[in-house]
Design a protein around this nucleic acid. Sequence first.
RNA 1: GCCUUUGUAGCUCAGGGGUAGAGCACUUCCUUGGUAAGGAAGAGGUCCCGGGUUCAAUUCCCGGCAAAGGCUCCA
Length: 648
Amino acid sequence: MQIKVTLPDGSVREYENGVSAMDVAKSISEGLARNVLSAKVNGEVRDADRPLPGNCSLSLLTWNDLDGKATFWHSSAHLMAEALEALYPGTKFGIGPPIENGFYYDIDLGERTIGEADFAAIEAKMKELASRKVGFERSEVPKAEAISYFKEKGDEYKLELLEDLKDGEITFYKQGEFTDLCRGPHIPNTSHIKAAKVMSVAGAYWRGDEKRKQLTRLYGITFPKQKELEEYLVLLEEAKKRDHRKLGKELDLFTFSEKVGAGLPLWLPKGAALRERLINFMKNAQESSGYEQVATPHIALKDLYITSGHYEKYGKDSFQPIKTPHEGEEFFLKPMNCPHHCEIYKSRPRSYKDLPIRYAEFGTVYRYEQSGELHGLTRVRGFTQDDAHLFCRPDQVKEEFKKVIDLVMYVLNALKFEGYEAQISLRDQVDRSKYIGSDANWEKAEAAIIEASAEKGLKTVIEYGEAAFYGPKLDFMIKDAIGRKWQMGTIQVDYNLPERFELEYVGSDNGRHRPVMIHRAPFGSLERFVALVIEHTAGRFPLWLTPEQAIILPVSDKYLEVSRSIAHVLKDSDIRASVDERNEKVGRKIRDAELAKSPFMLVIGEKEAADGTVSVREHGQGDLGTMTPLAFADVVKARIAEQLGGKI
RNA sequence: GCCUUUGUAGCUCAGGGGUAGAGCACUUCCUUGGUAAGGAAGAGGUCCCGGGUUCAAUUCCCGGCAAAGGCUCCA
């Protein structure tokens, strides 16, 4: 009997029934067969050596396919587990999946601990085990047998995993001396793994539950070639150079002080000025979109947060209240601006004709974050949101939401952010105890976000359980230099706060109606936004944003005076420029300016002083020739106009 | 908060139970140099903080604090 196998290029080949993906590979070429790691059969990734189920579509997976890499790393996790069992007998195993870059295995070492000093031994053992060139043998195991196997081994974690599996669906994989409960698939044999590195060790709660036992998580990565491992490590080093914490220090943007407190950034003059430019950029954009600025204090009475629901939700796990000395009144540092803005809305009666009302505030808020969670500018305890709250009629929600999407997109484009992901954050589908408000309101809000995003043609992913406690969100996520995802802009539809604050407007029917609120922050927080701009530009900011647009480099002290007067001319043309007045050679000044990422260097020597010109050198580009200071100013302005797409 | 690691000059880092080290930055002097580092001299330290062991602790031990990588959390 023959079966028909459809390959990715659309071609159909016939084979004997019982043929494996590996056999198909061999029939195409020996070289391909050597590189096959697993196979996608009718969309399902399987071991390459399993017989094909009949007529099917087949793609052979190699290191060049994401699924092939995942198979490779999954098998590597098993290999590391085998090494660990050999080195540390009695180790119990949790789960060991592949991840974006490599894999991890969660293990319970009992009383023993593992540190970086042990990594080399584990890597050596892995390589030794890999070189045996043994296969990963798949076997289907009855549940009772699987249970008795792990009972005997004393591995309670695998036993717990087995509880959730049905009899008849349980498979083991065995390579060498190591047998693991595993769905598979795996690579043909261990010898594909030529380079192995244990990257780091961390604590990880069993099944992600803080209340359960903390296991030791070992992260590792492997490659089919030693050279690829070396290249990967170089890439990691390069990424570290873009780290905003490092660049922020080098570029004099911000600092932290143990005396001020962890997670409380201090902005240096250059950083503060950069922040101001971002604020002005946003104010301009908002002004033309009908927003009005408001301003509110940093603290408020406890009662405000009881009304908003924040006290119940976060009161105990938050900064504790400040008390007045005599009356004992309790004030909280504001963790959000919305309750204040609700009170502004309530300050007088509203007509349907007034809506939408859009209150914007660059509000600094304070939140207690767990100490282990603080991270540079991306996770802090005090930060400034480019916050605004839109109060609108129910029939205006979708339109307003779409306008906010436009604003966010404008911001992302102006800063050249491309790799963002739009995430619709909805309620947890099972556990609803984390949220306030009626199901009906949640459903309305969720539908509004999904519809508005779809009508804007936004490519979105849906994440359940990621909503705010009072409403669903559309979040714009972006990765940092080392691939961690952060939330940047956010837009949220909220039916709950208007109810809690009893917000109303008088409709055309002369009746009282409840407005809907939209919370939104295109930057998210200025702190995090600056961090991500630093990492995405590697410190080479867009010209309109950069601290210093030009540095003037006199060839010798003789040209200090003319350099200073050129700086004045540029300043009068709104160009940010300064003079490097140090007693150094021009080569040195250029080197330092290049390292400081100054966009333009203006060399002034005898010729330029005589001609009334500047010799322009662009960062990373080199000499652009000479021109007058005013012509240079025009070049800068034209570049800025180009970067901002004609706006502002 | 939990796990692993780290904390030495402004920065990057070496060192080690008994006078504290380098490079860069900084100060002064010499040099007036044309597109990525000119030369010389000098100054600079509570070796994160607190306790313990010791004749002696920056070094070893314990506890804090801060930072790094994760886990959990994230209005």
